[in-house]
Design a binder for these strands. Structure first.
Length: 475
RNA sequence: GGGUCUGUGGGGUAGCUUGGUCCAUCCUUCGGGGUUCGGGACUCCGAGACGCCAGUUCAAAUCUGGCCAGACCCA
């Protein structure tokens, strides 16, 4: 079995090989940026979806689904939005043998599909807030190099769209989304920083955009989600109005919250090691794989014990697989380690006889569990596994930021950089050029490294309105 | 968006300049058999490819064009 490329030396090469080896996706489909979801990968994705659904529904959001095709006439109503997306929209221009009178856009995102209908749904302040989400595929004709999960042209997209009575209610919805994402990231053991994007990089049409960025090594980050405040930018062109209690007609203030399979990519990139993927229990297709060790003569008793353990764990809601393939145990260990399974239980003649199992978690920690307390011990091991993953990722997270005080320092940077920025766009672009990446924006929360007040702008030296900002390269 | 390059079994390669000797080769993968089974087993038998579509030619993996996919560089 070929070893993976070194993760610290060549992160992207490691990532591509690790995703491939874990069989999370098959990238041989002959359309650029569109990959096949394998059974294993789809299972992980559905578990990820379940985490999103659980946390967003806890905040009162309900699932809807809108069509994938949007008439050009609706698509073009908000000018900033169109400018932002027109270069990457796939158009459907023919139906059967004839050209369509009105071309149909294959949604790159769903504002323009949803908002004409929101205008029908929202009549009164009693209809508000309107909080709905959908998990659908969206399409963007990205011209850059595509990468499984991180940059694809068919995106598995979670998008919440909301309508609120006014700006402050919308701001409150943004905060609620940030809190929901905090819980999702907790389940994925994923550290991140919430960053307010600069004006030129916000979502097209948004009032402001907040993004969740996770440093993954070197100066590189993965943007794993965004929350946008739209104010009335869309409700005006789409005429989403309501009658307030005082009888006046008002436009709603809107927000959106977007996530995608990038989260899965971020999880692989953050937790994976030299053996391959490492998946937190919340999204692992199998939380536990049982490997029966079928030494000559003891086969039946061993298999019976292994299957018995699996049944009991399944009754407790665990996702369990018994690897009964005719293969040697060592080969099976590597197989499941590459796929990131959190916990392995070995059951051989010894264990079958003593009523135990040998537990080895994906971090290589070994213990013996006894049949009598199987369910609770496995539960405890998985909790500890996630906790350790979280702590390990958090420790690495704090080391992935460093302060830069001059532009030349940004060149060839080995970490994400924290720097003082005056807020001017031209200075922002100078910073982006220097780091050969992006100015992610200004952090919305405390940074993981100690900081005083920001000094003069790293680009122009102005001391008027410097703020701490983050510069990085996209993976 | 512009440019350069690449595409050979499931994965990695040789062959391409100068068309025929080539349906090759190694490590793996897959199917079957046997010996095995507590950290990537061994062995035997077998399967499997020239990105796609045209063109040139007696003859195309090889030359030409278009398309698709991928990599890198520039904007």
């Amino acid at each position: 079995m070929a070893d993976l490329p070194d993760k610290t030396a060549a992160l992207i090469d490691w990532y591509l090989a690790a995703v491939d080896a874990a069989e999370l996706t098959d990238k041989r489909y002959p359309v650029k940026g569109m990959n096949v979801w394998t059974a294993y990968g789809l299972s992980a994705r559905r578990n990820l979806d379940a985490v999103m659904i659980r946390e967003i529904e806890a905040t009162g959001s309900r699932a809807v689904e809108f069509p994938a095709l949007i008439p050009r006439t609706e698509f073009v109503k908000e000018s900033e939005h169109i400018k932002g997306f027109e270069d990457e929209v796939f158009w459907v221009t023919r139906g059967g043998g004839s050209d369509l009178d009105i071309p149909l856009a294959l949604r790159p995102t769903s504002e323009t599909a949803i908002y004409p209908i929101f205008a029908l749904w929202v009549r009164s302040h009693r209809d508000l807030p309107l909080n709905v989400y959908q998990i659908v595929n969206t399409f963007r004709s990205d011209t850059k190099t595509t990468r499984p999960f991180l940059r694809v042209r068919e995106i598995h997209f979670f998008e919440e769209h909301t309508c609120q009575v006014d700006e402050s209610a919308a701001t409150e919805r943004v905060r609620s989304n940030l809190a929901a994402f905090r819980k999702m990231a907790e389940a994925l053991c994923l550290p991140y920083l919430t960053i307010r994007r600069p004006e030129w990089d916000k979502f097209p049409g948004a009032f402001y955009s907040l993004a969740f960025d996770t440093p993954v090594g070197g100066a590189q980050t993965i943007q794993s989600g965004t929350v946008h405040h739209y104010r009335e930018n869309f409700s005006r062109p789409y005429e989403i109005r309501y009658e307030a209690a005082d009888g006046s007609q008002r436009f709603v203030h809107q927000t959106t919250f977007g996530l995608s399979e990038r989260l899965l990519g971020a999880v692989v990139a953050i937790h994976g090691d030299a053996k391959g993927a490492v998946l937190p229990a919340a999204i692992a297709p199998y939380e536990v794989v049982i490997v029966p060790i079928l030494a000559a003569g003891a086969g039946e008793a061993v298999l019976a014990a292994a299957r018995g353990y699996a049944d009991r764990l399944r009754r407790h809601g665990r996702r369990v697989h018994v690897d009964e393939r005719d293969d040697r145990p060592g080969a099976k260990y590597y197989h499941w380690e590459t796929r990131g399974v959190p916990l392995r239980l070995d059951v051989g003649p010894r264990e079958a006889q003593t009523g135990t199992a040998t537990a080895v978690d994906r971090l290589g920690r070994r213990s013996t569990v006894s049949s009598a307390s199987l369910e609770s011990e496995v539960h405890g091991i998985l909790l500890d596994f996630d906790r350790t993953l979280r702590e390990r990722a958090r420790a690495a997270f704090t080391e992935r930021f460093s302060v830069a005080t001059t532009l030349p320092e940004l060149t060839g940077s080995k970490t994400v950089r924290v720097l003082a920025w005056c807020g001017k766009e031209e200075c922002g672009h100078a910073i982006e050029t220097a780091i050969a990446g992006g100015l992610l924006g200004t952090p919305e929360e405390e940074l993981p490294i100690p900081l005083g007040d920001p000094g003069p702008c790293i680009a122009c030296g102005s001391t008027e309105t410097p703020k701490w900002a983050i510069a990085a390269q996209p993976l």
